Amino acid sequence: MAEPRVPPGRAGRLRLRRSLDVARRGADLLDQKLRVLRTRHEELLRTERDARERWHEQLARAERWLRRGLLLGGEEAMETADEARLAELSVSWTATMGVRHPDTAACTPPRRRPEDPAPANTALAHAEAAYAEALRAAAAYAVARSASRAVGEEAVRTRRRLRALRRHWVPRLETALAAADRALEQSEHEDAVRRRWAAGTVDGRPHAR
């Protein structure tokens, strides 16, 4: 981080004071932002964890029903399955402290058409419904994971900027301002001495010319 460039005299000191005020206010705002981001990130991490568990549970349930259906009907029972079709997914977005991230997902699995053959047995019908739920759970997990990552990454960037301000930039400005104050005080003292010399006195006493 470059040292602050300061013009000499009172103008330089005034500029340093303004820069220091701006840096301190910026650090305070970043600190507030970081607290909000951390709180939100923790919430999103919990949501992500719950969504992941639900997805795994739904997927395991669907696989159990599928195994039962295959035990009852054999491999040929899968021949009645309809051709693969795409699910529909709609994602809504929101923002946290300026960070845009997904909020919710509406997932619609492929619907069975009237001409599609029915599952070969009840277990496969349950498997079909369970896989649809697993698909919805997977979409919810993907949204939660993406949101937690986006907010978490912004929290890391904000923490770095805050650290740079408080550990580097603000102390440098404070040091520069202290040096400017000393230089200005010394300059004013020297000016006062020169004025007294010009007036014929030093420390209140006449001096020999």
Rank of each mutant, 00 (worst) to 15 (best):
T94G: 14
E75K: 13
R100T: 13
P109W: 05
H189I: 07
R111H: 09
L177K: 07
L165I: 05
R136D: 03
A105W: 01
L70K: 14
E79K: 14
R49P: 06
A60T: 09
V6W: 06
R24W: 03
E115P: 04
V143C: 00
T158Q: 04
L29A: 12
P109Y: 05
S90N: 13
D203I: 08
V170S: 01
D31W: 13
A155G: 05
N121Y: 01
W55F: 12
W55T: 01
D181A: 15
A199I: 03
R40S: 09
S90V: 14
L30T: 03
A123F: 06
V99F: 00
E185G: 14
W93N: 09
A176T: 01
R61M: 07
E57W: 05
A155K: 04
E43G: 03
R159K: 08
L20P: 02
A81P: 00
D191Q: 14
D82K: 14
L135C: 12
W197K: 13
A62M: 04
H56W: 12
L20S: 05
D21A: 15
E88Y: 11
S90L: 11
R46N: 07
R24E: 05
A134N: 03
E83V: 15
E42S: 09
R161W: 09
L173G: 00
Q186V: 14
R25S: 11
D203T: 07
A130P: 01
R194M: 11
R112W: 01
A27Y: 01
A180L: 06
E128G: 05
E174R: 12
P4E: 00
L70E: 12
G12V: 04
Q32G: 08
A183N: 12
A130M: 03
A147Q: 01
L184P: 09
D28K: 13
T108C: 03
A179P: 08
E190V: 08
E133V: 04
N121D: 03
L66Q: 15
G74E: 02
A139C: 11
K33I: 00
R61V: 12
V6T: 11
P102W: 00
W65P: 06
E128P: 03
T104E: 06
W197V: 15
R64A: 07
T47M: 12
L44E: 00
A198K: 15
H126V: 02
A120N: 04
G9I: 05
A11V: 15
P117G: 00
R46Q: 10
A142L: 09
T94M: 06
A142F: 02
E75V: 13
H207K: 04
P110W: 00
L162F: 05
S19K: 13
E133N: 02
A138Y: 10
A183H: 10
L177G: 01
R85Q: 07
A150G: 03
Y141M: 09
Q32M: 06
L34I: 01
S146A: 15
